[in-house]
């Protein structure tokens, strides 16, 4: 979560709760938000690395809040992150390991394994569908995120089909 926070700070300085709020606004329900502790922990690490610096702001009616802002090194880090191509998503291979090595572990019913996994995928898909329905039209980011997840899930199911054809 380091770079997203840096990117948010690149726009303007903010304190922890503001950053958490901004994240929640962007992703909505589609992605679980960090808790405030994780946010502050990450900010501290960033400060330690010299990418951000903090400042206490005195407030009259409230306790002091700590405002963070980017350092020049931090700005460089964001620029580098944005320009460099991202790694391809790493596919979770937990299930495939089970399927591939199952027989060694004494698993005889590969079909059952596959069926159970399919049912799980489908119920996740169902959940995602409900989520999509609940998300308002205007929230493009969350909707795209959900759609991306569905497409990946479809790909997983298609891969499952192929495994069934070849291994069962």
């Amino acid at each position: 979560m380091r770079l997203p926070l840096l990117a948010l700070l690149a726009k303007e300085p903010a304190h922890g709760y503001e950053l958490k709020g901004q994240l929640e606004q962007i992703f909505g329900d589609a992605y679980p938000s960090l808790n405030i502790g994780q946010v502050y922990l990450t900010l501290q690490r960033l400060e330690h690395a010299g990418l951000v610096r903090s400042q206490d702001v005195v407030q009259t009616a409230r306790p002091n809040k700590r405002v963070y802002e980017l350092t020049p090194a931090g700005r460089d880090a964001v620029a580098t992150w944005v320009e460099a191509p991202s790694e391809a998503p790493r596919i979770r291979d937990d299930f495939f390991m089970k399927l591939a090595l199952g027989p060694l572990a004494g698993v005889t019913d590969r079909l059952g394994l596959i069926n159970r996994q399919r049912r799980h995928y489908l119920s996740v898909m169902r959940g995602l569908s409900r989520l999509a329905e609940a998300t308002a039209e205007g929230n493009k980011i969350p909707r795209l995120l959900i759609e991306g997840a569905m497409m990946h899930l479809q790909a997983d199911l298609d891969w499952l089909q192929r495994c069934q054809e070849e291994l069962v």
């Binding site: 329900d29 992605y31 996740v124 959900i146």
Partner: peptide, 16 residues
């Protein structure tokens, strides 16, 4: 009954 709240996190992980 839908499983406990499903999010995109169940399928992919946002890293950064």
């Amino acid at each position: 009954v839908p499983p406990p709240r499903v999010t995109a996190r169940d399928v992919l992980e946002l890293r950064g």
